[in-house]
Every structure is written in C-alpha cells, then in structure tokens.
Nucleic acid binder design. Structure first.
Lengths: 193, 193
DNA sequence: GTCTATATCGAGATAGAC
DNA sequence: GTCTATCTCGATATAGAC
C-alpha cells in the first residue's frame, strides 16, 4: 500500500471503473484501459491475472465508494428519515451520468447476470446492492419498521432502479426529477404508518 | 414472404431473439446462432448485411410480439382498468424467464444505450417501450386520466422495470409476486382519483 | 439459394528483455 | 517493476464453388 506499484494498480482500477460504467464491462477492452491510463496492455498482468480480476477489483472499489457515500449521509444527519431521503436524492447529484449511463450498480448487475460461465460475477454481483439494502434496513430499524424492513428496502431499491432505467433510456431529466420527488412522498407515506 | 428463404430468415431471427435475451446482444456470436439453427455462419449474410441488421430485425420481432400480447389483453376485456392490471401481471406469466434473464425490453435497452458508435440502436431502442407507453396512455384516456396519462404511463413502466431488475439480480420469486401485487394496489389507488 | 473456405481484425493473455 | 513483441483464439465479414 502506498507503493508506486499500487499507484499504477489504482489507476487501472479507476480507469476500468469509469469505462465499465460508460461502455459496459464486455465492451471495454484492455486497449481502452491502456489508452486512458497510458499503461501498456501487457503490464496489466503484473497486477491482475485476468480481466475478471479487474472486474472484482472494480466491484470492490464501488463498494468502497458507496460506503463513503453512506458514511457521508450518516455524518450529515442522525435522523434515519433524513438519511433515507438523502439516499433517494442521490441520483440527482449524479444527474448527468445517470441520464447518460444509468446506474453504476444496476447496469453492471443486469449485464453480468447474463454471464453464465463464470462464477465470480455471481458471487460479487450483489455486493453493492447488499450494502445498500442492509444500510436501509438499519435506518428503518431505528424508525420502528424492523418487521417490514427487508420488504421496504427492496421496494426502495427497485423503485430507484426503475426510475433510473427509464430516465436513462429516454434521457429524460424532468422525469428523473419528478420521480425522485414522488419517491420522497412515498417514503413519507410508507414510514408514517 | 412465405418462401423458403424467408423461412430460414425467420429461424435466424427467432434464434437471435432468444439468444439476445438469454446471453445479451454483445455476448451472442454468429456461431451461437449457427449452432441453434443449424444454418452455417456464412449464410447469414445472404439475409442480413451486418449483425446490427439482425438486431434491427429482432427489435421488430419483439415489437410484433408485444403488439400481439396487447391485442390479447384487448380481446380479453374491454375494461381499461382490467387491461392495465393484465399488463402489470405479465411478468408473472413469464416468471421463470424474468427471474433468469430479466426483462427482454429493459435488459436489451440498458445494454444498447451504452453503444455510442452505432446509430441504429439509438433509433430503434425505445420502439417497444414507446409501443407500451402509448397503449397505456390509451387505456388511461378511457379512464379520464388524459391529463396525467404520460406521467402515469412512465411511472408504471419504471415500476415494472425496477421490480423485474431486482427480482432478476436476486432471483427472488417471492419479491416478484409481492411487488406485482403491490403494483395492482397502486394502480387502483392512483386511478381512483 | 446454400454451403465451405478463408480473410481480417481485435480481443485476452504470455514471454522475456531491460 | 516496466515495457515490447508476440501468441492464440474467436469474432464479424467476404469470396466464390456448387
């Protein structure tokens, strides 16, 4: 950690993270990553054995990114309701990217779920979703919704994914804004019971 | 039409339709289609100029399939509310496929929206979504919801997409059933105003 | 119309010099 | 640790015999 080698490794992961998001995993080649980093293709194999290993590192990186985002939410307010609203508004903070490339979790997941041969994808696939889900459940617990926690958490994730997918396919910013707003109303209604 | 050549063309489109759904467009090769149809790779170019042309034919085919489904809904009942409920329940009629491969429209769309080079994808991409949306709006008109029609239609599509994505990624049949049920309740509430 | 053989390219991956 | 050169394979696509 902190060595020069790790720095290059990190640059590869960062570039792959960005490219897997904007072009998709299968449509990103080693040449693409090489072009973006300036690191020659052959060098990748000093840090990773296969392309799937890079994918695993990218998934880990995204787990880390979302952990940081959630930590931010926690530090901004201690009110679980406020925290959930902040999560629901997250797509608006990345509006341009969301409209262009969809959700970094959802789009990657729906791409990898079709990969039948490999096994790593199936294992790590839901890592970020799981992280978000348990964080949501945590907030719901504090709101006295522990019995319905799992269901509500999945509902929230599903609604966010659907909104982002339609907003992405139609490149529809007004829809994104209105739907996030509706989602807030739904949160208020659902959690007032 | 009806010639032997068209029959082979149709077999290619059918196989590609199935494979694009189960493996994804980019992960389906001419060899895969050849294996499934028994028609040699080289022969494809007698019917299609490029792989994208096959994709265009598949999208057309899916438009046709969904037109037939909607026609079925219309013939089953003349009540617009019943028709919308039938649409919402559609994922349950293809439960096994939905849990394994997601939505044939949504998953293909989110794959192709990342394709930047080509232009055909951007053009035809929303063809099936557009078909469903205008059909939904049609039913909402009859229910006196013409003012909110476009918004409600997008909401319904977004909710279905989100439900299917989560059900697919987690291979979660109970969630799919419960969520479709919730969707029916939402339809009843939203359209009773 | 149908099929085989082949061209061409870019992908992931390896070997080995420095 | 870093880079170049190269291997192998499978992809789309083409040519041309039958």
């Amino acid at each position: 950690m902190g060595t020069k080698g790790s720095a290059n490794r990190q640059r590869i992961v960062d570039a792959a993270d960005h490219l897997f998001y904007s072009r998709g995993y299968n449509q990103t080649s080693f040449s693409d990553i090489s072009d973006e980093t300036g690191i020659p293709r052959g060098n990748f194999y000093y840090y990773f054995k296969t392309k799937e290993d890079i994918l695993a590192a990218v998934v880990d990186a995204r787990v880390g990114e979302f952990k940081a985002v959630l930590k931010n939410c926690e530090e901004a307010t201690s009110d679980p309701m406020q925290r959930l609203h902040a999560l629901a508004q997250l797509p608006l903070q990345h509006e341009t990217q969301v409209l262009q490339y969809g959700c970094p979790i959802g789009s990657l997941s729906s791409e990898l779920v079709k990969e039948q041969d490999t096994e790593i994808s199936q294992v790590r696939l839901t890592a970020v979703f799981d992280l978000l889900k348990s964080w949501i459940i945590e907030q719901l617990d504090k709101l006295g919704q522990s019995s319905r926690g799992d269901d509500i958490a999945k509902d929230l994730l599903a609604r966010m994914q659907g909104i982002i997918l339609i907003a992405n396919v139609y490149n529809d910013a007004p829809f994104l804004h209105r739907s996030v707003n509706d989602l807030q109303s739904w949160l208020n209604q659902t959690l007032s019971n």
